[in-house]
Design a protein around this nucleic acid. Structure first.
Lengths: 342, 342
DNA sequence: CTGTTAGCGCATTCAC
DNA sequence: GTGAATGCGCTAACAG
């Protein structure tokens, strides 16, 4: 007993194969009576379309290609989760590629994905190689960049401004009275670099910029590396009075190490994280962070692909800025802490 | 300028299409001279095989289907990461389905995946529905269950014993001198239930079992829920002297809340987490946890699928117990703490 | 609104 | 070791 095909369904419904095909793909285009007959036959046989055959014949698959730089980074698992939410119940599926933060690897994967005629492509960030941009511009499937914002997207872009988010957080810390604010950057991927630029711009504007305050490493972010980095900071810039971290786990590590060394938060050291991954809000004292709409970004990106394939007219603008939210917590509340410690 | 096909390559290499096909899939089966000609032609044209056509003709795809219960759970992102490591550079790709901890949804997704003739299926745990087991047993592709161990796998199984891991952690805490050890369980998925069973078995064996010590909720685990649960525990079983949590984030939340309430760790409250996700080891005091080989599990599972497809004879046993490791840290070091506090 | 014809690009089967 | 014929299951393009 082998898998039923369109022809089997057609025979039972007493129509031609192509009619069955149409009924399944676009029920509006057949008469109601045929639709009912066909649907009954499909039900009876438990027919499920063969996607390989469909892809081959139509030169268009139902696979959405999604390229992320990392799995270990929580941020991207959440973007993925959002995208999977969006395709739930649709005919689309997602195939993921791991670029490992390499633009060249990304280019190679884009090539590979494009050969399978994807329904859409979702890529992280805006730092593609020239060739990748060219390939993605030339393809006829929708392309969505995620996790940042730029003026000149390849096609659509969904995210928030890493530059602005960092600038706003930095501004807030300055307002709170911090002066020697360090930027702590791990991995130094393009989004972290944008954050550093936002930080720098605001520090310069306030006459507080000092290159020595930029502490960076190529190592990936983790709670452990955060702890080590506090040591580096204190030996390099002993008068540092606050840290702005490119990711929450680094901020958590720094907070733990401050506690261990009896460095008071925020009186001796202000701390601000990025992404608001869930732990910072629960600490003692709670750690300030920039909340980012990761799940929403994934959801919107996948929805753009789905809508474009259905030719649904969506918002004409191709730039979807989903914003961010600075979560002000005790770890940077210097004015409040000064007041309380009297 | 359209995509080159096998025939284009064949023309340039001056052989037939089928020879090109063979050269690409099994270079050993053609003579060296043809192999060189063909490979040169492939290179020249930048030929990339069409996977839809190949799937249709061979009734076997290069997609590995992988069903996970959740994306937000770090544990599964790491299993995914391991699986992606294993397929790197191979012809295989992975398609993920999110079962959202529902066995029925899983069944539906298994059905859907099987229609695409996958190269293999990887599913989480051992609690499939009867129908899912039947479907997976009947398929001819390799099936790998991950994240637990059982005697009667569908096909292969890669994981560790959640029961044993919990029993061992519980035994260790009892040895340390804890008596009123609570089990804190979130989500209550099958693996958490196995952990609870392991805990219970050891508590019973020691004459310490008390159902009131089992604190469970259907809510998913998070640092925040951990904090709330400590309150529940203390009001339900005020004499509780330790907690064994089903996941690290819950343990972290409980540690934070202890700190906030000036409950000393481990003197007043011992804490043990599960999975060793990275934060527990960095805390003050460091929190004990059961380290689980998540990345390795994913990697081995995908490798099993790859090897089975290549007909490479692997270990004949189908059960791969990758073990676990109890990381004993300060949060449960009651004997050491008692000594130091003199 | 429905059917006919003709492939999509590749792998299987059987020759040689 | 290599090739010819055939079909996988579906859909595009065109009729009617």
């Amino acid at each position: 007993m082998k898998k039923p095909t369109l022809i089997d369904v057609a025979r039972i419904a007493d129509v031609s194969a192509i009619t069955v095909s149409r009924t399944l793909r676009d029920p509006e285009r057949v008469s109601e009576s045929t639709r009912i007959k066909v649907q009954a036959a499909v039900e009876e046989l438990g027919y499920v379309p063969d996607s390989a055959a469909s892809t081959l014949a139509s030169k268009r698959s139902t696979v959405i290609g999604m390229l992320v730089p990392s799995f270990s980074n929580n941020v991207f698992s959440q973007v993925l989760a959002g995208a999977y939410d969006a395709i739930e119940g649709t005919k689309y599926s997602i195939q993921i590629g791991n670029t490992r933060y390499s633009a060249l690897k990304e280019e190679e994967m884009v090539r590979r994905f494009l050969t399978m005629k994807p329904a859409g492509m979702i890529v992280a960030g805006v730092d593609q190689t020239e060739m990748t941009r060219k390939l993605l511009k030339a393809t006829d499937c929708p392309v969505v960049q995620v996790m940042d914002i730029a003026d000149d997207p390849i096609d659509s872009i969904v995210g928030f401004s890493n530059f602005q988010a960092a600038a706003e957080a930095t501004y807030y810390m300055i307002q709170e009275g911090f002066r020697r604010i360090a930027f702590v950057g791990t991995r130094m991927d393009p989004r972290t670099q944008m954050r550093m630029a936002g930080y720098r711009s605001m520090m310069e504007k306030s006459g507080l910029y000092d290159p020595a305050l930029q502490i960076t490493t190529q190592i990936k972010s983790s709670v452990e590396i955060g702890r080590h980095l506090l040591g580096d900071i204190l030996s390099t810039v002993p008068d540092c009075d606050a840290v702005f971290c490119n990711n929450d786990d680094v901020a958590v590590g720094i907070a733990f190490e401050c506690e261990r060394r009896n460095i008071r938060i925020p009186q001796d050291m202000g701390i601000c994280g990025f992404n608001d991954l869930g732990t910072t809000s629960q600490m003692n004292p709670a750690v300030t962070s920039v909340h980012t709409p990761r799940v929403e970004i994934g959801k919107v990106a996948a929805q753009i692909v789905i809508d474009a394939n259905a030719k649904i007219e969506t918002r004409s603008e191709k730039i979807y800025d989903l914003g961010f939210e600075l979560k002000k917590r005790a770890s940077t509340n210097l004015r409040g802490a000064a007041f309380r410690s009297r």
